[in-house]
Simulated assay, not measured.
Amino acid sequence: MKQIIKNIYHVGDNECSVYMVDTQSDQGLVLIDAGMNLDMIKHISSLGLRFEDIQHCILTHCHIDHIGGCAELNRALPNIKFYAHELDAAPIEEPGHDGKTAASWYGVKYEPVKLYRRLESDTTLTLGNCVFQCIHTPGHTPGSISVLVESEGKKVLFGQDLHGPFNDGFLSNLQDYQLSMQKLLDLSADILCEGHFGIFQPADEVKKYIETHKFQNQP
């Protein structure tokens, strides 16, 4: 666990990296993905934050390593609000989508949760003092999103699983992926918080990471 920049934190790695934004308002804390369970999230007090202040969770896509902890989180915090793109909503909200959630890869059973809001295309969420640009970046899955937040004059990009993998069972699309990666490059982000490979900065390192995977994953 560590602070990345003012009011933005890396909560930890629980099959995927989980990040958190403090809105510094009555909207409390916002999670970017939930991981597989609450093992890491429960201990955010070490960052000077309170677990009970988590009010929102933005899900970048429907894979089990990013959404597996949602049901447990919902039981602990019944009023939490979940957000995801409409094209990945069904596997999150309904049972029977093990192929799309990759739950079978991990040998676990996914427990669905209800979304507070299904996002359409690119969507901006204003939560307290923070603006979350939820950018539709299909490729890894049809409803993959990346989230851009500004802090201290820097653009922080939560770009989960920009490396892939790509699989027909996920409904992956490499042509969509190429367009999505160019969209992210055009943002000129200063900090990249990736889903499995850590945090990249400054802007040149962010660009290098995205371009490397864009080149490697040609259709």
Rank of each mutant, 00 (worst) to 15 (best):
H140K: 06
K109R: 15
L162N: 07
C130Y: 09
C130V: 12
K154W: 01
D88G: 09
C134E: 01
V108Y: 11
D88Q: 04
L162E: 00
E93A: 12
D88F: 07
T101W: 02
L115W: 01
L127D: 05
S144Q: 15
L115S: 04
G96M: 03
E94I: 11
L157E: 00
R117P: 02
V108C: 12
L115C: 07
C134T: 14
T124K: 13
G99W: 06
S104D: 15
I145V: 14
D98N: 13
S121Y: 08
T141W: 02
K100D: 07
V147W: 00
G139A: 04
T137W: 00
L87K: 13
E111C: 09
K100M: 13
L115D: 04
L148T: 09
N129S: 10
I145N: 03
G139L: 03
P91C: 08
R118E: 06
N129G: 12
P112K: 03
H97K: 06
Y110W: 10
V108H: 09
Y106R: 12
D88H: 04
S151Q: 12
V149R: 07
V113W: 08
E111G: 06
P91L: 03
E152H: 06
E120K: 14
E152W: 03
L148P: 02
G96E: 01
F158Y: 07
Y106N: 08
T123D: 14
V156Q: 04
V131I: 11
S144P: 03
L125M: 10
C134Q: 05
K155F: 04
Y116H: 14
Y116S: 12
L87T: 05
S144R: 14
T137G: 05
T124R: 14
Y110C: 05
L87I: 09
V147T: 13
V149F: 04
F132P: 09
S146V: 11
P95V: 13
P138K: 03
G153Y: 12
L127P: 01
